[in-house]
Design a protein around this nucleic acid. Structure first.
Lengths: 344, 344
DNA sequence: ATGAAAGCGCTAACAA
DNA sequence: TTGTTAGCGCTTTCAT
């Protein structure tokens, strides 16, 4: 008789005329089993191509060995790379990933957390949607003792571990760089105001201006939804509302910077000579556009690995205290901001 | 006593003094249960915030309601969009996704299929790694009656359903376009020879040349690994080995086209006037690079939806015959190939 | 060292 | 209509 179903522990037990307990123990290398029977069981298991059924294991162990990952969108390259990092660390520890995207919608994010909770993931690694301002859906996870780790788009209102980069410093450095390149009137296209990273990068921008004695002005600041479309429209708006156009643009992220780049070129200005431009994140494309985009590189892969590691730490540690890891960024200077500076 | 664990069917039964069977039936809307008890059970379940444990359901139903998705890399934008499409259709049908990447490695792909099989996914949706030339790891899935759907990077050696675009036609059209733009010597940077899509796109290229009476030559064809790096190096190679440089480049994918674009510009040639350039896929970046890239648009989201639908069809149909869906591409003409053509 | 039995949360065949 | 029972594949007491 051909059995199409995978071999079970019981099949092995029957074949060898031993108890399922013995098989279970042998398979998991428990001590109280004689070397001979153990070897025999192991050998037979191999012959029968036995693979433990993780569903059954989950049911009895009350853990699924899967991590839920919740990101705003698959199509943002930043997250693709972070997920790779998460997967690397997770796989090494025997965990699978279930990845969902919120599509930048708060409602979808709430639904996703419910789905993940119901499917009994052992933990959740999240970057918030750009709409998210309320966090009670994560409290429900915490109530069930499901560890939550936030990264990139985080909140400080939840008692959870976090992985971020030093947004303030990265922002400060790139704006400082624009200033050193001779920019006097630097516009900033920020992100959604409710995101912490928006506020941190904005602060870095403002502090850099102040440090170099440049006037900040709300007229030079716009809040975007992080899309290339708004990069285009807000750049147009900045041009249209200013008598003298800005001589520098700092965009919250590369996508917005690409939108700004298109618009600046369409308006007939030269980058970087008339207007210098910088973004944030260093997406692969940043090196390819013309002119290549000056930006702030984030250690995406490492962010993913770190987030997964924080989850693992929490799982293995009974009384775990949330920690926040701050990774360093790196200024990447490319053609979009490189101009000859007249030395005073 | 505070119970931190989710409510079970048994909790409800105990509270209401009915059998678990009754609860199970009421919850799933089975007929043989009185309206009153049914309402009572439903109400209590809601009050206790009952959520069925999918692990337990999986164990008894012998299905996990999850689909394994196996792609070459998260960082290829094409796949990000396809996954979105898969997820849309899968979620609607109550399926979760487990996504793995092979990292373009045959070995990793084999490992991933093993992992997915062990985790008892109900089916697998795959795009092959660029190294894959042997397919026996998928036969193991088929032996266990796990449906396999291939997309994009497929093989015809497996009796499974497939989703592809009309690579031949898309390729033919874009090369025809280059010819109509006046190109006489069009180079082709192809993909890995073992991929079917490489051969189909190559054939479209060759047939278009032939149809317009242009000579094809192996000297103008190179095989790449689909990376931007090889786009750069093979373009250099083409320049270095040709006395007269090509006046057109058709790249197997946009990434390779970007590499070619960088190189062509670095060599001091004008795009499109000296050399016209086209890619394949229409990644979001294609519209942003300078000059914007002429390419062949693929219905990525729809590819994902179709693949998921083929899986669902197979699940719901006892005697299912594999089908191959061929979706249409669309030529997207942009600046990289737009030149004034002198009319004879 | 070995095995019988209970149980994880649920479904389903069968009785009552 | 309702409840009893067995069982999915595995782990874990607790006897033997």
């Amino acid at each position: 008789m051909i059995k199409n179903h995978p071999a079970t522990i019981k099949d092995i037990a029957r074949k060898l005329n031993v108890s399922v307990t013995a098989v279970s123990k042998a398979l998991r290398g428990m001590p109280d089993i004689s070397p001979q029977t153990k070897q025999l069981i192991l050998k037979t298991a191999r012959e029968m191509d036995y693979q433990p059924n993780p569903i059954a294991q989950s049911l009895v162990n009350n853990q699924t060995k899967t991590i839920g990952v919740l990101i705003p969108s698959f199509t943002i390259p930043f997250y693709a790379s972070v997920i790779s990092g998460i997967q690397k660390t997770a796989t090494q520890a025997g965990y699978n990933l279930v990845v969902c995207q919120s599509d930048e919608s708060y409602e979808t994010e709430v639904n996703n957390t419910r789905t993940l909770l119901n499917s009994r993931v052992d933990g959740v690694i999240v970057s918030l949607s750009r709409e998210t301002a309320d966090f009670s859906h994560f409290s429900r996870l915490l109530d069930r003792n499901v560890p939550v780790v936030l990264f990139n788009r985080i909140t400080e209102e939840l008692p959870v571990s976090r992985v971020v980069v030093d947004d303030y410093k990265g922002s400060y450095q790139v704006v400082e760089h624009l200033i050193l390149m001779g920019c006097k009137r630097i516009a900033h296209i920020a992100g959604p105001p409710n995101l912490l990273l928006t506020r941190n990068r904005l602060k870095g921008y403002l502090d850099a201006l102040k440090a170099y004695g440049l006037a900040a002005s709300d007229d030079l600041i716009r809040y975007s939804d992080l899309t290339i479309e708004q990069g285009i429209s807000l750049t147009n708006e900045l041009f249209d509302t200013q008598n003298i156009p800005p001589d520098g643009f700092f965009a919250i992220c590369d996508s917005v910077a690409f939108g700004a780049m298109l618009t600046i070129k369409n308006r007939g200005w030269q980058i970087p000579d008339d207007i210098a431009l910088a973004g944030f994140t260093d997406e692969p494309v940043a090196a390819i556009v013309e002119p290549a985009l000056t930006t702030v590189s984030q250690p995406t892969y490492e962010i993913g690995q770190t987030a997964a590691q924080l989850f693992l730490d929490q799982i293995h540690n009974k009384d775990y205290q949330p920690v926040t890891k701050v990774l360093e960024t790196r200024l990447v200077v490319r053609k979009s901001s490189m101009r000859l500076v007249l030395q005073g």
